[in-house]
Design a protein around this nucleic acid. Structure first.
Lengths: 233, 233
DNA sequence: CGGAGTATTGAAACCTATCAACAATTGTGG
DNA sequence: CCACAATTGTTGATAGGTTTCAATACTCCG
């Protein structure tokens, strides 16, 4: 069953990604060869070690890319929002697992067909290269966060990143719907849920944010948040 | 002045990268349009914020990709060895700086020409995509290290990674020439130089390694090192 | 040999993790 | 709609690993 993702309009916990992915025109050919799949919250798209024979395009919802160490420690390597492409592993098998953060819809793309399409359509190849390089840049800035920032800086950076990605950059008082639990945030930022909780409390106390609900963050002072994030720019 | 990098045989602090980069045949066209440049230790290939108008192929030596926060904290995002391609930023400007870890020789490639070459030669485009995806995978595993591993696990993982990259995987008692200072290692692993030093001492005490010289590591017990690294596999 | 840079080692401080208790939220069924 | 259980989030006290500050040793090289 082949469906064009453009027609799908499932509820989206996060607004569509802004500035991520590529010009829709270059990616469009991909959508034609995919199958829409519903994925329940916490369900797995693929496990670590699985054969990397499919790519996934997030249509609605959110997906995490994560690894669990033998003793249970977990780290998220990326978070994918609608429009993003999951599974850019050119190895034989996936080195990370991909799981739905919320009930999601994804477009499942056979890798073999994607490869064929790339060969026929150089623009698509270029688009994928740009995409990979973009994810690489994000990974590198996350390395700075994980290697050198303290808890406050990490959470501030995370929130600012979400503002950008959810297209609220222009809003004066952006409001974020987290959807993720504290556990997901903690594992993305290399912290514990307790530290994430305490750091939310600190940001609230500093009047950088309001927290009307654990899953809802209202940014009250973006400049303060930017100072707290200690970005290099 | 155009030079084929293949003819250059400068002394190489690290052996050539094994398994990194792509089949030489696919990358070869690149080398024809580059200029060889000598870069002294600690000299800069490009600064953060510089226009991303060149790529660099490491011919000999080693290059670090790094960012410095406003207050001086530093994080290395990648380390490039001979054969590796530096500067895969498709944005307007570089978001990280690139500096020579040791006296190095690099091939400087005008990005405009690389773009042209990609359009003429799809194989090259595919090779670059693979390369970017490979770097992405490395970045993701480094995120696990930075987010979740303790000092011992980080250093053990680092040493094992070097063994792989320097093609000593087969050797029973691999010997590593670090070239990097403790500061570079610390900034790559998200630690301080003191912690790196203490952790080397711990690995030595556990008989996992010998340290005949600060820059020379002899692996005495690879299995122990692998246990200590706590890799997911 | 001497001096600069680099590495090691020690003691104390600090930030985050861990352990624990409790509160809030969500979902379910009566 | 409420009661209850399960999940999720918050807050406190303590412990622990790494950082910081400081002193000393080692290595390289003129």
């Amino acid at each position: 069953m082949f469906v064009n993702a453009a027609v799908v309009q499932a509820p989206q916990p996060f607004p569509p990604a802004a500035g991520r992915g590529l010009p829709a025109s270059d990616m469009a050919p991909l959508d034609r060869l995919g199958t829409l799949v519903d994925v329940a919250r916490d369900a797995t798209l693929f496990y670590e070690g699985d054969l990397a024979d499919h790519l996934y395009r997030v249509v609605s919802g959110a997906v995490r890319l994560c690894k669990v160490l033998p003793d249970g420690r977990r780290q998220l390597a990326d978070i994918f929002l609608p429009g993003d492409l999951v599974g850019l592993d050119l190895g034989e098998s996936h080195s990370f697992a991909a799981e739905a953060i919320t009930d999601s819809v994804v477009l499942k793309l056979p890798r073999q067909r994607v490869e064929t399409l790339i060969n026929e359509n150089p623009r698509l190849g270029r688009a994928l290269l740009s995409l990979a390089v973009e994810r690489l840049a994000a990974a590198q800035s996350q390395m700075v966060l994980l290697g050198r920032k303290n808890a406050t800086e990490r959470l501030a950076s995370f929130l600012l990143g979400l503002i950008e990605r959810t297209g609220q950059a222009a809003s004066d008082r952006p409001t974020l719907n987290l959807t993720m639990t504290r556990a997901d945030i903690a594992d993305y930022l290399g912290l514990t849920i307790e530290t994430v909780s305490r750091t939310f409390a600190r940001l609230k106390q500093l009047n950088a944010i309001a927290l009307p609900h654990p899953q809802r963050v209202v940014v009250r002072d973006r400049e303060l948040l930017e100072e707290l994030a200690e970005e290099a720019d």
